[in-house]
Amino acid sequence: MSDWKPKRFWKQAAVAEMAEGYTVELDGRQVRTPAKEPLLLPTRALAEAIAAEWDAQEKEVDPTSMPYTRTANAAIDKVRIQHGEVADMLAAYGDSDLLCYRADSPAELTERQALSWDPVLDWAAETLGARLLPVQGVMHQAQPASAIETLTRQVHALNPFQLAAFHDLVSLSGSLVLGFAAALNWREADEIWQISRLDETWQEEQWGPDEEARALAALKRVAFLHAKAVYDIST
């Protein structure tokens, strides 16, 4: 396998305003995505975050150190041209939302789920206009069609950059409702992440920590918080 990495060839990364929005230029040349599309961004804040990543590169370019750039590339090269399909895929989480599947025992776990998850479902009913219903067990039970339709419309309303970030908020938490809760500032993003980890935290308390699982969870937490940051500066 080749160890070749692209070299830094520019002296300065800068934000440029355009008729369509904002972009990032390297010594006056517009950055393009892997699919060779112009890097057109909806907000100056997102462009500034991406420019800072390019400026931070040293002799070699390390794509793993450029999460804002990667998310913007995904929004332009993938989400923008498959917006409807991505929105439908994420909206489908609502019909099997993590928050709706409750343990039937032990009592301590069921109480903890109710205390943590019921307030989010109540918030969704009030703020999003969609009431999802909790059930016991893991067998799928369809949610009210009207609630899913309402949530689906709101997912489709997101712009490609919001939707790219929202994808990670939902897929990492396993919950459409928690994705909206993070995006719309129901609570701090880190608290929402911990709410999504309730079952895993319970298992760890009963059986002890699994270091490999902890390491993976830490990476997912970083990705979740990054997705929230991208969402916030993409509007």
Rank of each mutant, 00 (worst) to 15 (best):
Val155Pro: 02
Ala183His: 00
Ile81Lys: 15
Pro106His: 14
Gln206Asp: 07
Asp55Pro: 06
Thr23Asn: 00
Ala74Phe: 14
Ala164Asp: 06
Arg187Phe: 04
Glu188Phe: 14
Glu48Trp: 02
Pro134Lys: 03
Asn73Ala: 13
His167Gly: 12
Pro160Gly: 04
Ala142Asp: 12
Lys11Thr: 07
Pro34Thr: 08
Phe180Arg: 06
Ala74Leu: 15
Arg32Trp: 11
Leu39Arg: 03
Ala56Lys: 07
Leu178Phe: 04
Lys228Arg: 11
Met139Glu: 14
Leu40Val: 14
Leu172Gln: 04
Lys5Leu: 12
Arg153Met: 05
Thr71Trp: 08
Ala142Lys: 07
Ala103Arg: 12
Thr64Met: 15
Ser105Lys: 14
Ala103Asp: 06
Phe224Met: 01
Ala218Cys: 09
Ser234Thr: 08
Thr43Trp: 05
Ile195Pro: 00
Glu205Trp: 15
Arg131Val: 07
Asp55Phe: 09
Gln162His: 10
Glu25Leu: 02
Glu200Lys: 14
Met89Trp: 14
Glu211Pro: 13
Val177Asp: 00
Asp104Gly: 11
Val177Glu: 05
Ile50Tyr: 08
Val155Ala: 10
Ile233Gly: 01
Ala16Lys: 04
Tyr22Phe: 15
Ala130His: 00
Arg29Ser: 00
Leu26Lys: 01
Gln57Lys: 08
Ser116Gly: 13
Glu25Arg: 03
Trp4Glu: 12
Thr152Ile: 03
Leu172Asn: 05
Trp54Val: 02
Ala215His: 13
Ser175Arg: 01
Ala114Ser: 14
Thr71Ile: 13
Glu204Lys: 06
Ile50Gln: 03
Ala56Asp: 13
Leu98His: 08
Trp54His: 01
Asp55His: 12
Ala164Cys: 10
Glu17Ala: 10
Ala189Ile: 01
Thr23Glu: 00
Gln30Cys: 07
Glu53Asp: 08
Leu128Trp: 03
Tyr231Val: 06
Ala51Trp: 02
Asp3Ile: 08
Glu37Ala: 15
Trp207Tyr: 13
Pro134Ala: 08
Thr201Met: 15
His140Met: 07
Arg197Asp: 10
Arg32His: 15
Ala107Val: 14
Asp210Trp: 13
Arg102Met: 09
Asp77His: 02
Leu40His: 11
Arg8Met: 02
Phe224Arg: 01
Leu133Trp: 11
Ala19Asn: 11
Pro209Gly: 12
Cys100Asp: 03
Gln136Cys: 10
Leu26Ile: 00
Glu211Gln: 15
Gly84Asn: 08
Ala13Leu: 02
Ile148Val: 07
Glu212Trp: 12
